[in-house]
Structures are given as structure tokens and as C-alpha cells.
Design a protein around this nucleic acid. Structure first.
Lengths: 231, 231
DNA sequence: GTATTTTGTTGATTATTGTCAATGAATATT
DNA sequence: AATATTCATTGACAATAATCAACAAAATAC
């Protein structure tokens, strides 16, 4: 019976996120009865910028990218998310639209939570509201870092910074390296794909990183950090 | 007697901000008894990036800029604020530090509100917590726009965008134009002062704007908007 | 297994943007 | 009023980064 229920939702995904710790039994149950789990193949869009924001998701398996669709088909990747991570958006409590696009990069499981349910819980539970404020503010903090990253660093610094971000904040639990394709690396660092490729090659030629196809290993974190600082 | 009280705080400043509408009498009083009003001269720093976040402010008179201090003494202006506006920060509920610097540009009055008082009220009043979430999310929204603005537009588009921002969102209630110095315009658009000056001159030469010293009037909003779109 | 499409790579060129230096104008200081 | 000091301006130049085109390699479709 319990296994059957797990088909509908993802079991205990919300208990793995600190933000949901403050929920009462009853509130957890409210979420559990409405939420459901969906699987995505690489390249599938989960949320599309411009559509109505009806749900948030919790990524329970796989890998997604969250990005802004900008001018002339250029995208700006704001973050990558791996399990267990919540993907919300600034449309919550404002215009209830999705202002970013979320796309699966690997085979991904996402657990959908209805925003109205969430809203109801926030209205009941101050601690949860505070946890959410904290979550939003910590995201704003990364955003500020990203501003400096993108507007005040040269291409070398941006690529180094992006690699360090992937290594330390996205794939922190992985042995060795990680995979990312060239276009995504370019979209993460706000430069053309060709420029990204060139910088990557330079870093490889200096043995700061190893590259085999899309698989990247950082060999010299210290020097990458220096490059990231200066630019 | 009432006049004497106004020396300590700024009278009814919080009643002019929608975000404080949900406060009870008692909660308003909590804020009123601890808050106090401070005057700043142009160039004075109100909050300094890196210091402890003990208060938020409400700007009741004057003009301030909110900016990130980045690399090599370069600043990135996130927003300008005029009365009545609240200046908070992502340190709230996270690390309680100031992550941005706030500086008076004109003679400014700011009303200081203690973050602990604020925190206490948030814990009591869900509607206020929601209003705050809404406020934070709407700021995140502008942040997203700014990302595209700064990373995907050329210098012409960025200057045009900045001028439209100043005209429509900062000085929207002013007849004619507004004042901004060249360095601030450059810091708002993430370019060098010299580049900013050159673009400004081009826009002036094409009669899209009038410039007299630091005073700028937008003559052709439509064409500026076109330039802002394309870049 | 071959064809087709996507993704990655490289070099040449152009476009964009920053830096440096010199100078003028405006403002503040003594 | 004379002197600093800051701010604005301009041109020349260098550095940075995008575009374009051609091609190679890998993945996918047929």
C-alpha cells in the first residue's frame, strides 16, 4: 500500500528540505494529498517563462537548469538544481507567472506542489513563512554575487567562477568532475559559445582542468579561484 | 507636543507604505516607539556593505542609491529610491549583514526600524510576512530584468534602458527631467564613465534627450524604448 | 550502416568597450 | 581672487569579446 502511494508522490521528499521542517503533521498531509510526481527526459521543459505559475516543484532526481529567456534567443542560466531542491519563483504573491524557464538536463523527477496549498499553509504557519523568506533572501544573495560575476569580470574570471560554482555548489557531492555542455556553460557565463570554448581550452592547456567531451574535472582549485577573483 | 514627537520619528511614514498596512495598532506602536529619523547630506553612507544589518530604513525625503561594491572599486547600482520607499536587504533572516551599500545622493531623511522589532512582528502577523514576501519577490523580478539588461544589451540599449528606468520608475512624479551624474549613470549601466558620456552625447545629438549639466530630459520616449529593446 | 542533424572546434575578421592621457569646466577651499 | 579638487569631455589606442564561416566529431534518425 505504501509503495502504491509512492507512485503518486515522491514519498518523503519534503522532509529532506529544511524549509519544510516547520510544517505540522496536518500541513504535511495537505501537501502530500495534492502533490504528484512527474518524470522528465533531458531537454523537456518543466516550467516555461511567461506561463501561469500554478505550482512549485521539488527536484527529487536528476538535474535541471533554471534560466531567463532573454533577447535574440539568448538564455541566461541562473542556477542548476539537483536533488533535493525547491524551484519557486518571484511570481509567488506577485503576478503568479513563471518568470524563468526550468528545463530538465538529465532524466529528472519533480514533485509538484500546488501554490494555493502552499499559500494556505503560509497563512497558517508563521515559521514556514519565515523559512520561505529566508530561502528567498538567500537566493537574492547568490543573485548579487552573480551580478558582480557577470558585469565586472572578464571571460577568464567568469568561466573559472562558473566551474567553481558547478564544482562546489551543484556537484559538491560528486567524486571527480561533472558534465556540462558548451552552450550551457556559455549561457551560465553570459558569453558566446565560441568564446567559452576558447577559454575552456586555455584552462585545459594550462592543466588547471581536464576535459573529456562534456566531462570536466578541476585540477587546481586554488589557481582557478585566483583567476576567478581577478578576472 | 506632536511636533516634538516628529523630531524623534517621521510621523506617519509607515502608513504611506502598502507593506505596513496589515499592522495592528499595537504593532505600529511597537515600531513607532523604537524607530528614529536621521538626516543625511549628499555623499553620506547610510548602510555600508559588510557591516551588521541592525536596521532597515524608510526613505522619507531625498534620494539614495543602493549599490554593490564590486571588484577594483567598481560599483553596480541596483536601484535608486525616493520617498516613500523601504530599503531592506537579503541579510534579513539569513546572516544579518548588509550586502549592499546605501548612500544619500541628495539631502535625505531616513527612518530607522530595528530588525528585531520587525522580526517580532513578522512572527505575530502572517499578513505582514506575506506582504514582505511579496515585496521581496517583486524586487527579485526587477533583478531578473536587470540581468537581461546588463548582460544582453549593448551600451546604447543599456543607457536608453537606464534613462527610461529613471524617468518611469524613479522620477515618475517629476515634471520634465531629472538629475544624475555621469559616474552614477555608468555604475547603473555597468560601463565605464567615458563610454557612458559618449553614448549620452550621441542620444543628445540625435535630439532623443536634452542634457544641461546633470539635468536630463527625455524628448522621445518611443524611440528610446526602441533603442532599449534592440540595443 | 548510412544519412542527417546537432554539437564542438578553429581561424579570421569585425565590433564593442575599456584604458590612458590631456584638457576644460565647474565647484570647493584657503 | 587664487588655488585646489573634483567632474566632464574628447581623442587615440589597446583590449576584449562577438560574429562569421568552414569544418570535424558525435549523436540521432532512417
Amino acid at each position: 500500500m505504501k509503495d502504491l502511494m509512492n507512485i503518486k508522490h515522491c514519498g518523503e521528499c519534503i522532509s529532506n528540505l529544511p524549509i519544510f521542517r516547520s510544517l505540522t503533521e496536518e500541513q504535511s498531509e495537505m501537501i502530500n494529498t495534492t502533490r504528484c510526481r512527474v518524470r522528465y527526459r533531458p531537454g523537456e521543459t518543466i516550467f516555461k517563462q511567461g506561463t501561469a505559475m500554478t505550482h512549485i516543484i521539488i527536484v527529487t532526481e536528476g538535474l535541471v537548469k533554471v534560466y531567463l529567456e532573454g533577447i535574440n534567443d539568448r538564455n541566461l542560466i541562473l542556477r542548476f538544481a539537483r536533488p533535493v531542491a525547491m524551484i519557486g519563483g518571484p511570481g509567488f504573491f506577485t503576478d503568479y507567472k513563471n518568470h524563468v524557464t526550468t528545463m530538465a538536463i538529465e532524466e529528472t523527477s519533480a514533485c509538484f506542489i500546488d501554490v494555493n496549498t502552499l499559500k494556505e499553509i503560509i497563512e497558517q504557519n508563521q515559521n514556514f513563512a519565515i523559512a520561505l523568506l529566508k530561502w528567498v533572501n538567500s537566493h537574492t544573495l547568490s543573485t548579487y554575487t552573480k551580478f558582480i560575476e557577470l558585469t565586472q569580470k572578464g571571460m577568464h574570471g567568469r568561466i573559472a567562477g562558473a566551474l567553481l560554482y558547478l564544482h562546489k555548489e551543484v556537484f559538491f557531492d560528486m567524486e571527480g568532475g561533472f558534465r556540462i555542455n558548451r552552450q550551457d556553460l556559455a549561457d551560465l557565463t553570459a558569453m558566446s559559445k565560441e568564446s567559452g570554448i576558447r577559454i575552456l581550452k586555455e584552462l585545459k592547456d594550462e592543466n588547471l582542468i581536464s576535459v573529456v567531451g562534456n566531462y570536466i574535472v578541476l585540477n587546481d582549485i586554488d589557481r582557478l579561484e585566483k583567476i576567478s577573483m581577478k578576472g
